[in-house]
Design a protein around this nucleic acid. Sequence first.
DNA 1: GCACCGCATAGGGATTTTCCCTAATCTAAT
DNA 2: ATTAGATTAGGGAAAATCCCTATGCGGTGC
Lengths: 218, 218
Amino acid sequence: MPEKLRILLAEDHLTVREGIKMLVNAQPDMEVIGEAENGNKAIQAVQMLTPDVVVMDISMPELNGLKATKKLRAGFPKIKILTLTRHTDDGYLQQLISAGSNGYVLKQSAPTELINAIRTVGAGNSYLDPALTRKVMGGYASRTSSLRGETKGEITSREGEVLRLISFGYSNKEIGSRLDLSIKTVEAHKANAMRKLGITSRIDIVRYAILQNWLQDN
Amino acid sequence: MPEKLRILLAEDHLTVREGIKMLVNAQPDMEVIGEAENGNKAIQAVQMLTPDVVVMDISMPELNGLKATKKLRAGFPKIKILTLTRHTDDGYLQQLISAGSNGYVLKQSAPTELINAIRTVGAGNSYLDPALTRKVMGGYASRTSSLRGETKGEITSREGEVLRLISFGYSNKEIGSRLDLSIKTVEAHKANAMRKLGITSRIDIVRYAILQNWLQDN
DNA sequence: GCACCGCATAGGGATTTTCCCTAATCTAAT
DNA sequence: ATTAGATTAGGGAAAATCCCTATGCGGTGC
């Protein structure tokens, strides 16, 4: 048997992390060599430990898994990144893949799926959770807007801040006083962000927030 | 050493469940004797297995941990229920305790906390996560409404329907046409539900929805 | 260098939504 | 039979949102 696969766990929930660690370490061909509770620490840990595979949760404080994946991919092209998520939305998947993730596993899936996925990406292949494969296969042509270059500018951090607070149920006025801005400015950020995202209603903002995992753990 | 504590795990995420199971089974004085992925199955499992402690996730499909706790408490007064949650909201805690939970642990906490908590409730005491104790100690006097008997009745299904749609970002008008009601009726349900919950703002509705897990996986 | 674009900021005024109060049925419980 | 809560809904006041316009500021392009 060759060397064991060296795994870095990036996941903010300690309980989940411990669970995965025990699961991984119970395998003969892999071991957890490091842990990180946010994206920044994950990047530091990769620099120090050079793992073979990073198991990366999307939703983490400070620097989320999506951004951490992008950064890691830029600095460490050979590292394999396996994204772990709660979401089944394929719109998100597209972002992940373009960020450079090698695989995508749902937290809902069986533990053996995770182990399979780690082996698969560790071997240099890409892995897509079976539950997602179905989604991706059907009805993808409708979501090619970003490929046609219609993604004119991404959401700025200010806009994101406003959208997030809107999704939480704050009024424009409340957001204004919270961010120390005029209501009018908040309205403008909201409108610009919505135009960029191609959405027209408050419900779409909530949906977007759910995908961004903004509505968790607050 | 006496008998091992017999644990039932009620948690919908298989990965998390596996993690906890390994953790529990690694202890000399406790073991997992059954698992359930929703509240209904948990109740069935309790009837069949009569565990000492049920580790119950709040957010589960079909029947959530809150309702399952209430039902179990009615039928099995001696069973200890330890609530496992992602949330730090103390308003929710009150509901849990009145539902009959013996303890409350955050998923974010260290695995040893969970083990401690299981031992504590298994011994017949109640356990409150240290992270929550702080919250509960400070500024609780403001939230004693339910102790004064102002919790006149629970949210009705109609009210819940309305709250859920509000949390999703629908306007009263949209909810009205969706449920085929006058806007005025929607407003009334909203106001009544808010009065019952003792909340006053849209943000509180969203928080409530997050706790109810209404905003996940749609 | 200057024109142009996007970001962050914000006002005015029209429109829409929500809030507060009141109230009529209907059903279940006492 | 009287009370309590659920479901329905209107009128009018108050608040929030929407649409349009506008000003600096910092890059990018030619």
